[in-house]
Amino acid sequence: MRPAAAPGALAPRPDQRVAKALIAAAVLLTIAVLVVPLAYIFHRAFAQGFQVFAANILEPNTLHAIALTALVALLTVPVNIAFGIAAAWAIARFRFRGRKALLTLIEIPFSISPIIAGICYLLLYGRQGLLGSWLLAHDIQILFALPGIVMVTMFVTSPFVLREVLPLMQAQGSEQEQAAVTLGASGWQVFRRVTLPNIRWALLYGAVLCTARAVGEFGGVSVVSGSIRGQTNTLPLQIELLFNDLNIAGAFAAASTLTVIALVVMVLKTAMEARR
C-alpha cells in the first residue's frame, strides 16, 4: 500500500516507511548480533578494573598462549605467502595438465571443516597412525607439540594468499613480464621489479587475512594440541579453557586480546582495500 503520490510526480516514489523499517531492522540486527557482543567482551574484561585485567593477561599460561599464537602465525604466514605466490604464478602464467585439479586441491581447506584436517593429521602422525610407529621409534614428536599445531594452521590457511593474488595475476596478464624478459631481465629481476610490485596490495591483503585466520584457528588445532597448559595451548584454546574453568574474567580478558588483534587486522584490511 503506497500513499497517494504527490501531484505531478512521474515516477512511483519508494515508500519511506518501508525503507525506514528496513534500515531500522538492519541496524537493530547489527547491534544485536555484532556490536553488543563485541562491546560486551571489553566490558566484561574490564569489569573488575584494569589491574584485574592486567593480572589476567599477565598470568603465565595466558601470556604463553599469546606468545605461542604469535609464533604459530609467524611460522605459518611466511610459508603461505611463499607458497601462495608460487602457486598463483604457476597457475596464472602456465598452462599444464592438472592445472584445474591443482587449483581445486589448494582450495579444499576452504570448504572442509578444520576439524577434519586435525583428524587427518591424527590418523597420519598419531601413535596409532600410518607414520606413528616410525616417529615414535625416532623420538619425533609432531602431534601435541608445536610442529602439529603449525602444520594444521598451514593446512587451514593455505588458500588465503593464493585466493587474493591469483585473480589479480590473471587479470593483469603477462605482457609486462614478457616485455621485461625481452629487455633482458633475469627471472628474479622480473619477479622483483615487475610481478611483485603489481601484486603487492593483493599479497598484503591475503597475508592479513591469513594472519587473522592463523591467530583465530580453533577446531583443527584443538585436535592436535593436547591442551597442555603453558606449552601447547594457543590463545583460542586458552580462552575456552578459562571459560570452562569458570574463570570468566580471565576468559574475557584473553578474548579481548584476540579481539584487539582481529580489529587491528580488520583496520589494516580496510586501509589496504582503499589502496587497491
Binding site: 591424527l122 598419531g126 601413535r127 596409532q128 597412525g129 593436547g226
Partner: peptide, 8 residues
C-alpha cells in the same frame, strides 16, 4: 583418545 594417539 589423545594419549592413544601419542599425547605424552
Amino acid at each position: 583418545r589423545a594419549i592413544l594417539e601419542g599425547l605424552p
